[in-house]
């Protein structure tokens, strides 16, 4: 399968990238590791006239852990996974990154690309000819949403593994354009819409992800997928909590792959604050998450089952935060040993 024709530009600085992007933001796309964009271009889901390659911008590959942590958008997932500071301070992020795609894809894929990953749908992640055979769909070249034919919006799935983990850890992101710079909470970058899934303007570049110092925080990430590698999540949960002894002071739970955006579970935070993690409390929080999850029939597995598993995932995550030994359960459920070459 061949790439369509496009014009390639390689800026050396964020400023150049921003001004080139501003020239024609509607039909220009940014290329980081290319592990999402290139397949999409081959399948003609995304056909930018101009592609701006970011890999020459040294500033984007910095990983700085002096005050909190600043991760450049161009930092690869492998770099993150090999970083001892990330591993010890932001366990949930580390776990999520270690389970993304495959080792080869993690060598290419960046954190910025992961955050901006196109939403996914089994009616959409198909070749041009396949989509022609269903007369296309609302997200690209067509009108109907085949997942829910009466839906007036696209229900494609947010499939990024890192974003839920980052949101649970309170990440903010920096967006730079020719017009200026803005910082926003990562959650604010997302909209629950399969087509306009980012609030990022087309002329903006994501440059940095900032994580606060994790003093007192513990975090974890549980991912469900068919196989131990390659597969995108069909449901996932990131949980982070600040503890005082056994007692939770504050907590955040974010679900992945059950909506068109990473799904914050606010009820969980409220319910957990000030509490000790008992089995009953864990079950109640799992119910909160279950109620919120809205998987659709556009990924691997049946949607009813995916929704059900959200309960188990949340419960497992909370048990791990409580300090239960979940290693065996994790290997069984995630089929991934969380071992990586350092």
């Amino acid at each position: 399968m061949r790439l369509p024709s496009y014009r390639y530009r390689a800026p050396k600085t964020v400023e150049d990238a921003a001004s080139w992007l501003a020239e024609s933001p509607g039909d220009t796309m940014l290329l980081a590791g290319g592990t999402d964009l290139i397949p999409n271009m081959k399948r003609r889901q995304q056909v930018p006239a101009t592609v701006i390659g970011l890999r020459g911008i040294a500033a984007l590959s910095r990983l700085d852990t002096r005050e909190g942590t600043d991760i450049g958008a161009g930092v690869t997932l492998t770099t993150l996974v090999r970083d001892e500071r990330i591993r010890s301070k932001y366990q949930g992020l580390w776990q999520s990154a270690a389970q993304i795609a495959t080792p080869l894809l993690r060598n290419m894929g960046t954190i910025g690309g992961n955050i901006c990953l196109d939403t996914r749908c089994t009616y959409y992640d198909q070749s041009f000819e396949w989509r022609q055979a269903i007369n296309f769909c609302m997200k690209k070249d067509g009108e109907t949403c085949w997942v829910a034919t009466s839906s007036d919006r696209c229900l494609a799935v947010s499939s990024t593994d890192a974003a839920p983990a980052l949101m649970a850890l309170g990440a903010t992101v920096r967006l730079v354009s020719a017009l200026g710079t803005r910082d926003l909470a990562l959650g604010g970058l997302y909209a629950n819409d399969g087509m306009s899934y980012l609030t990022r303007r087309p002329d903006e570049i994501l440059t940095t992800v900032h994580l606060p110092e994790p003093a007192g925080w513990r975090s974890t990430y549980w991912k469900l997928r068919r196989r131990g590698s390659f597969d995108f999540p069909v449901a996932s949960v990131a949980a982070a909590a600040r503890f005082d002894g056994d007692r939770i002071i504050e907590a955040r739970i974010v679900l992945g792959a059950v909506a068109s955006c990473p799904l914050d579970v606010p009820a969980a935070g409220t319910r957990l604050a000030g509490q000790v993690l008992t089995d009953d409390l864990i079950a109640a929080v799992a119910d909160d998450a279950y109620a919120l999850a809205k998987p659709m029939d556009n990924t691997d597995f049946e949607l009813v089952w995916r929704k059900k598993t959200v309960r188990s995932l949340v419960a497992s995550a909370l048990r791990e935060l409580r300090g239960d030994d979940m290693r065996e359960a994790r290997v069984r459920l995630a089929r991934h040993p969380l071992l990586v070459v350092s």
Binding site: T122, D125, W130, A133, R227, G228, P337
Partner: peptide, 20 residues
């Protein structure tokens, strides 16, 4: 009238990996 292969790709046609 469409009847299409659900996912004619190596990603979605699931073949066990080293880890499975």
């Amino acid at each position: 009238h469409a009847l299409v292969h659900k996912f004619p790709s190596m990603l979605e046609y699931k073949s066990p990996t080293f880890l499975d």
